[in-house]
């Protein structure tokens, strides 16, 4: 495969909206995790300042809520883009619809995760396993938004958040709701760790510019793979 003079094709994979979505998403998730953690276990501050002169915790919560709104609408936007974006952004990348999807997932699992030997068969956009993982993250997004707005509903009068008052009852009260919301934070942290690692991994073992693809939007694909995919 790797013969001398082997030829790489530049393919435009991530459209600008996907890239903007991605980095905005990454940013607000980091912010939500950080502020969320602080809300759950605030730092000890010994201070003689009267409460009326400080609003630290209020600010932390404010950041959480602002980030939450951005997170939510960014996510909605991404769903929309799944229907109008290019084929790499398409929702079908995320939801297993046919046998081939599962086969491919199994392949990736074998090769990349369990490190078994076999024929490398890189994909251009998401590989099936990654796609499915993102599907799971979308579900986590949904849960986090529902639980988050469920908690938020009692703090605001805006009709939008008010739509979520039912959530608390479904979860059996705010306490349980908050527990779930808090626990789900760890999914995001774990996802981010594995995700960032795998992006580096792919860049390292495949040499197609995986990392920079989320910056410029393109990847470098081997001629053969390109031809195969075209056929």
């Amino acid at each position: 495969m790797k013969k001398k003079g082997h030829y790489l094709r530049r393919v435009f994979v991530w459209q600008l909206p996907v890239r903007v979505y991605h980095w905005l998403n990454a940013l607000v998730i980091v912010a939500l995790c950080a502020t969320g953690y602080l809300i759950g276990s605030p730092p000890a501050i010994m201070s003689n300042v009267e409460a009326s002169h400080r609003y630290l915790f209020g600010i932390i919560r404010f950041i959480h809520f602002v980030a939450a709104y951005i997170f939510f609408f960014n996510f909605i936007f991404r769903i929309y883009w799944g229907f109008v974006g290019n084929k790499y952004a398409d929702w079908k990348n995320f939801i297993p619809t046919n046998k081939k999807y599962f086969q491919q997932m199994w392949e990736v699992l074998k090769l990349d995760i369990f490190m078994m030997k076999g024929k490398e068969n890189p994909s251009i956009g998401h590989n099936a396993l990654a796609g499915f993982t993102y599907f799971l993250t979308f579900i986590a997004f949904l849960i986090q938004c529902i639980t988050g707005f469920g908690l938020y509903a009692s703090m605001t009068d805006w009709w939008f958040a008010d739509m979520f008052v039912w959530v608390s009852n479904v979860f059996g009260g705010d306490f349980a709701l908050r527990n779930w919301h808090h626990a789900a934070m760890w999914f995001f942290i774990l996802f981010a760790m594995v995700h960032v690692y795998l992006v580096f991994y792919h860049d390292y073992v495949e040499g197609r510019g995986e990392i920079s693809s989320m910056g410029g939007g393109w990847k470098f694909i081997e001629e053969e793979v390109f031809e195969e995919e075209k056929a």
């Binding site: 501050i45 201070s47 630290l56 009692s154």
Partner: peptide, 21 residues
């Protein structure tokens, strides 16, 4: 219809991040 927290007179301390340790 309201949380204890919403009508708690210690709420300003919560917002300020001042807590009993």
């Amino acid at each position: 219809s309201k949380r204890v927290h919403d009508s708690c007179y210690r709420r300003p301390y919560y917002d300020a991040g001042l807590f009993v340790e």
